[in-house]
Amino acid sequence: MAALDLFGRRWTLRILWELREGPLGFRPLQQQCERMSSSVLQQRLTELQEALLVDRDPQGGYRLTALGRGACDELHGLGRWSEHWAAELDRDQPDSSAP
């Protein structure tokens, strides 16, 4: 359940998602995350480092570890499921153009 606690914290999944393409420095990561506060970003990055999901690259950027990449791989499955779910919700909505 510790993973659910970590992933349930605001911005955690977004940070992992933004790092999926490669390392980012603090400011670029903050911009990618719609300018979340620097204190929250620093706190989440510290938590993700302690959880061994993120580490620092030699240039000082933040990057996913092997465990972090594995978490992102699993998020892709959740993304596919959420698209299916959204389609079902849309299909179940009454047609607003009907009289």
Rank of each mutant, 00 (worst) to 15 (best):
H84V: 08
L16C: 06
Y62C: 05
Q49M: 15
R63V: 14
R56L: 00
D5T: 10
R10I: 04
L89Y: 04
W11I: 00
S96H: 07
D5A: 11
A98H: 15
Q49R: 15
Q49L: 09
S38D: 09
W81A: 10
W11Q: 00
M1G: 11
A66H: 05
S82P: 00
S37L: 04
D57L: 08
L13E: 01
S39H: 02
P99S: 02
L67Q: 11
E88R: 13
V40L: 14
P99N: 10
L64Q: 03
E34G: 09
M1N: 03
D73L: 15
R35V: 11
A86D: 10
W17H: 14
G70A: 14
R9L: 01
L48P: 11
G22Q: 07
H76T: 15
T65L: 03
S97V: 11
R63D: 04
A98G: 14
P28S: 04
L24K: 07
G60C: 06
P58M: 02
A98F: 14
L52Y: 10
L41K: 11
P99M: 10
D73Y: 10
P94V: 06
F7N: 03
R14S: 14
S97D: 12
R80Q: 12
H84G: 12
W11E: 00
G61F: 06
E74D: 08
L24P: 01
P58C: 02
L64D: 03
M1D: 08
G70H: 13
W11D: 01
V40T: 12
F26M: 04
G70N: 11
L41T: 09
R35A: 04
E74C: 13
L75A: 09
E50V: 01
W85G: 01
E47W: 09
A86G: 07
R91H: 02
D90H: 12
R80C: 12
L4W: 05
L78A: 13
Q32V: 14
L6A: 08
R20C: 09
D95N: 13
Q31L: 14
R20K: 15
E18L: 13
G77K: 13
L41C: 13
F26C: 11
G22N: 07
A3Y: 02
R9G: 00
R9V: 10
R56W: 01
E88T: 11
P23H: 03
S37F: 05
G25W: 08
P99D: 06
R35S: 12
Q31A: 14
G60R: 08
W17P: 05
P94S: 05
R69Q: 15
T46A: 01
A98S: 15
V40G: 09
D5K: 11
E21R: 15
